[in-house]
Simulated assay, not measured.
Amino acid sequence: MANGNVKAGFEGAVKTPEGLSYKGVILQPVIDKCEGCARMMAFEDQNYCPSYPQPARKWALGVCNFATHAKVQVETQGKGKVNPLKASKRAAKGR
């Protein structure tokens, strides 16, 4: 029986002081950077990410790779690293 507060994905989840206990994993509430993500699911009065239990740590090093609302920007300005030996041969040829 599904409770009115629970989405189908969190059936059997229990709220604990540490977070939301779901299938033996403690889920932490989502952070403000997660707002707008399609993976986010509500349980009672808070939103949780079923893909990653600690959303704050996922965003610590940059963009979360599970985020459906954020795009990764690729740097296109630099050409990349050039081998110095090849560069000297090209310079000697006159390219």
Rank of each mutant, 00 (worst) to 15 (best):
F66P: 03
Q54D: 13
P50I: 14
M41S: 00
D32T: 06
Y48W: 00
G62V: 00
P50W: 05
G94K: 07
R39M: 01
P17K: 15
W59S: 07
K93I: 15
K89E: 10
G78I: 09
P29M: 05
K33M: 04
I26H: 12
W59L: 03
L61S: 14
A13G: 13
G12N: 15
T76W: 11
A2L: 12
P84S: 06
M40F: 00
V63Y: 05
G36C: 00
G78W: 09
E35W: 07
N65W: 10
V72P: 04
G80I: 09
G24A: 11
A92V: 11
A13R: 09
S51C: 10
A38D: 06
A13V: 10
P84V: 07
G78V: 10
S51G: 04
G19I: 11
K15C: 09
E18I: 11
K81V: 14
L20R: 11
S21W: 08
I26R: 06
D32R: 09
C34S: 02
S21A: 14
F66C: 09
G19F: 02
A42C: 05
K58T: 02
A70C: 10
E75S: 07
G9I: 12
V63K: 05
P17M: 11
G36Q: 05
K7T: 15
V25A: 14
E11N: 15
A13L: 10
N83T: 07
L20N: 14
Q46T: 06
C49P: 07
I31Q: 08
F43Q: 01
T68P: 08
K15W: 07
G12E: 13
K89I: 13
T76I: 13
H69T: 09
K81T: 13
K81S: 07
G62I: 02
F66K: 04
G94N: 13
V82G: 03
P29C: 13
G62M: 02
Y48K: 01
K71R: 12
A38R: 01
K86Q: 03
D45W: 01
F43M: 02
R39K: 04
N65S: 10
P53H: 03
G19E: 12
H69E: 03
L61T: 03
R95L: 15
P53M: 06
I31A: 04
V72M: 07
G9H: 04
K79I: 12
V72L: 14
Q46W: 05
P29W: 03
V72R: 03
K71N: 12
K23V: 03
G62E: 01
F10G: 05
G62Y: 01
Q77I: 08
N47T: 02
R57N: 06
L27W: 02
A60V: 06
T76N: 10
K71E: 14
K7G: 15
Q46I: 04
T76A: 10
D32K: 05
C37M: 01
N5E: 12
G12P: 13
G78F: 11
N65M: 12
V30S: 03
L61H: 05
C49W: 01
W59E: 09
L27N: 03
I26E: 15
N83M: 00
G78L: 13
P55F: 00
A60N: 04
P50K: 10
G36F: 01
C34A: 03
K89A: 07
R95Y: 12
L61W: 11
A70P: 02
P84T: 05
V30K: 01
A2I: 10
K89S: 07
Y52T: 08
G12V: 12
V63G: 08
K79R: 08
S51D: 04
D32W: 02
